[in-house]
Simulated assay, not measured.
Amino acid sequence: MRSVDHALQLAVLLQVEGPFGVGEAAERLGVAPSTAHRLLAMLVYRDFAIQTRDRRYAAGPVLSLGASSQSRTALLRSVAMPHLAALVERVRESANLVILAGDHVRFIGSVECAQALRVGNREGMVFPAHLASGGKVLLADLPPERLDALYSEAKWAGRLDQRPSLAALRRELRTVRERGFAINAGRTESGVTAVGRPVRGEDGRALAALSVSLPTVRFSRDRLPELTSALAMAVRDVEEEMRGGGAHLPGRR
């Protein structure tokens, strides 16, 4: 099962971040280079990856994410990760970077805190956007017609029992817009609470979200000002670096 998990993590990394070498893959997974090489060779065999002329690996035909989206996501992650680590130092809880992928959010960056009881690394995972804190702040920024399309009955055919009430979702997202942050109290994972804020591009549109995840036993409303303030600082730092550090990042399509 661990090998399967590692292979899936590599597939996600190839899809959302673009090409990397065996050494980089081994470092990200925490495995030996020989193990990373075997996993990548299997992904190549099954067309999930291809090997480039410089002996790096890139997404193959099965992973059909556009190159511009890869570079945008990789750039966003590279800018945000140091600020995620600083956020973790500030609040002593785990932190994440998420992007919207249809009606789900994908975790493209995650930093664990050092506490014995903690929320683990979520990188590569996906959760329903309307349940996750980061997903809610991203949905709250969508034009009404796009939100309606995402949650139309036709789009959710075959899983209508999982489809949220659009009227209730609109009300919740209105509150999220007013507050500037969202809370997920055990709706994606039992015993886990998360708080999220949007990261905005130069055009003012939300292109990603930062979130802090912690065991529910350590969360209280008294901690909310601390968490939202720390998130606001991290978001500000990411946005400033993207604007002023030469890391131009286009707005979300």
Rank of each mutant, 00 (worst) to 15 (best):
A182D: 03
R174K: 12
S229Q: 13
L142A: 04
A74T: 02
G196Q: 04
V119F: 00
E178Q: 15
V137T: 08
R106G: 10
T73K: 01
A25M: 04
R243G: 13
A11M: 11
P198E: 00
D141Y: 01
H248G: 14
H83N: 05
V62N: 12
H83L: 03
A114H: 10
L117V: 13
A149E: 09
P128N: 03
V119D: 01
E153T: 15
V126K: 02
S152H: 02
Q162E: 14
V238K: 00
G204L: 06
L231M: 06
G21A: 02
S34F: 12
P250V: 01
Q115D: 14
R197C: 09
A194E: 06
S110R: 00
L139W: 00
M125K: 04
V192S: 06
A59E: 07
V12M: 07
M42A: 15
L76Y: 00
R2P: 11
M233A: 15
E145L: 06
Q15H: 12
S68A: 14
A7V: 08
L249A: 04
A234Q: 05
I183V: 10
F219H: 03
R2D: 12
H37Y: 13
E226N: 08
G120C: 12
R221Q: 13
H248D: 15
R2A: 13
R243D: 07
I99P: 09
M233G: 15
S133A: 13
A185M: 13
L117P: 08
Y151P: 06
Q9A: 12
G21T: 06
L97S: 04
K155G: 11
E145N: 08
R253P: 15
N184E: 12
T35Q: 10
G102P: 05
L231F: 01
L138I: 01
V176G: 08
G120I: 11
E17M: 06
V44N: 03
V199E: 00
A232W: 02
D54P: 15
R122E: 08
Y151G: 07
R72V: 01
E153A: 15
T35D: 11
P198C: 02
I99R: 00
G204E: 04
S190N: 14
W156H: 07
H104R: 13
R55K: 14
L87Y: 00
G186R: 03
A41F: 03
S34Q: 12
R53V: 11
S152P: 12
L75T: 10
L63E: 08
L210Y: 04
A168I: 10
S110G: 07
R253H: 11
G109S: 07
D141M: 04
G246P: 09
N121A: 07
V44K: 05
L169D: 13
R2V: 10
T73D: 04
A154S: 12
L29G: 09
E239S: 07
F107Y: 02
A101G: 09
V199K: 00
L14M: 06
R205E: 06
S94G: 09
G102C: 07
R118G: 10
M242P: 06
L173P: 09
R55M: 08
G196E: 03
R122V: 05
E202I: 08
A116V: 12
H83D: 05
M81W: 02
R243W: 02
R236C: 12
